[in-house]
Design a protein around this nucleic acid. Structure first.
Lengths: 229, 229
DNA sequence: TTGCAATGTTACATTTTTGTTACATTTCTT
DNA sequence: AAGAAATGTAACAAAAATGTAACATTGCAA
């Protein structure tokens, strides 16, 4: 079965780049140059994934986003927003508009394909929940993006894994050993103190703007995802 | 308390290697040379963890696996399967049958011990009731939070452990020595009076708002979790 | 290559916990 | 009631746990 990817993009050179890479990865490529044409064609094509430029000649890409989400037959289609530097508003990064991921231009083809694949994988088995949420922390396990207070938090791989582990059982206290077993794997020899350092890095990364303390230290026991009492 | 590890293995040289390393790590070692004998002895010994050879003279190790899983009193026992190279293709079925981990021969003793430790840690934390309640005290061992009259009580680690110990047998009187043995561990030399101090700290921490006396002093005997007469 | 990001460790700073002691208070015994 | 024994209480110094910053190493990408 063919997988259809639809791009709404006015910049010629970018279109051919997209087309080349997407076709190379074995997907069908469809395209429109304006928001208006896009909304028309998307209904006909019924693509499996949509790439939207943030800036379009007639209307902003966000309008297409709203349009798609409000149409029953399309509303589940994953959307990736393409934005130029400087256009990154909290809207995009907070993913409040309803897109599933975004990419900052210029992006590497490798990254583009990786993110497309991640989203397609999810929508294939859509029964699986890919959004973890706790308090003001939001985590998308498909795109590996993390948001704290609607602002994106950039985590390293280890920090991400630790947070994901904690998010699966919010409030529950884990020993350093349990975190090690889960994140590093059982047959690895790593100092307990390493956890402390990564916890610090995680806390730091989550302190985007405001003070949002969500990782609790339980002295002589371990850590947990929880609000301080 | 001793931890018992049972191995079903016919290869002599491997048995002595196992025995040496397992005993060195402070575990008791038990052994049978055939699947048949293994099934007999495992019921008697009731080990904490089982090592099964994939290939045995009379029956494949997977049979023992099934046998164990179908016996109420043994079904929670973690199992590690030992397989020679080339038998890996069947690994899938091995894991499906219900073993918890596997090791490819030849394996390093370090790796073996690491995995044993990991599985023992996991099974220890399993069947543990996470909510303890007595009168107006509520204790969640998952989150390590304690509530007294619906208000959170902040306890130090020692106080927490003592309370947890008392909560498991409400009303029962424990001597200072019993509390020491349980919370501090045996072979530790600490003054009896230390208990008194911690009991005071515990009482104080539990006096959140109102006077709620739940720790009773039994003169010349010890303490118990109980309402004052 | 070079540079960069991620990682794990270490050393040091800071905070919290802990066990002991001395003294006060209560309870029991005579 | 006095004295002895047991327990409550407060203060303190040592020890332990955790936070923090800096560093060496590694792997990877430009």
């Amino acid at each position: 079965m063919t997988v259809k990817i639809f791009s709404v993009e006015d910049e010629e050179s970018l279109v051919s780049l997209l087309e080349y890479n997407i076709k190379s990865s074995g997907y069908d490529f469809y395209h429109a140059g304006t928001a208006y044409q896009g909304m028309i064609d998307i209904q006909k094509v019924k693509p499996d994934l949509i790439l939207l430029d943030w800036m379009l000649p007639d209307q902003p890409g966000t309008e297409i986003c709203k349009f798609i989400r409000s149409h029953e037959s399309l509303s589940e289609t994953p959307i990736i927003m393409l934005t130029a530097k400087g256009e990154e508003s909290d809207l995009v990064s907070g993913l409040n508009i309803g897109c599933d991921d975004y990419l900052l231009k210029p992006f590497s083809p490798k990254e583009l394909i990786a993110r497309i694949n991640a989203l397609l994988r999810r929508s294939k088995n859509k029964n699986k929940e890919s959004i973890l949420e706790f308090e003001n922390i939001k985590m998308n396990t498909d795109t590996h993006r993390v948001y704290c207070c609607n602002k994106e938090a950039k985590l390293g791989p280890r920090e991400y894994s630790i947070l994901e582990f904690l998010m699966k059982k919010p409030g529950r206290v884990f020993t350093r050993q349990q975190i090690l077993d889960s994140v590093w794997g059982t047959n690895v020899y790593v100092s307990d103190r390493t956890i402390d350092v990564h916890i610090r890095r995680l806390r730091q990364a989550l302190s985007t703007t405001e003070e949002c303390k969500v990782i609790r230290t339980i002295r002589s026991s371990g850590y947990s995802l929880d609000i301080e009492a």
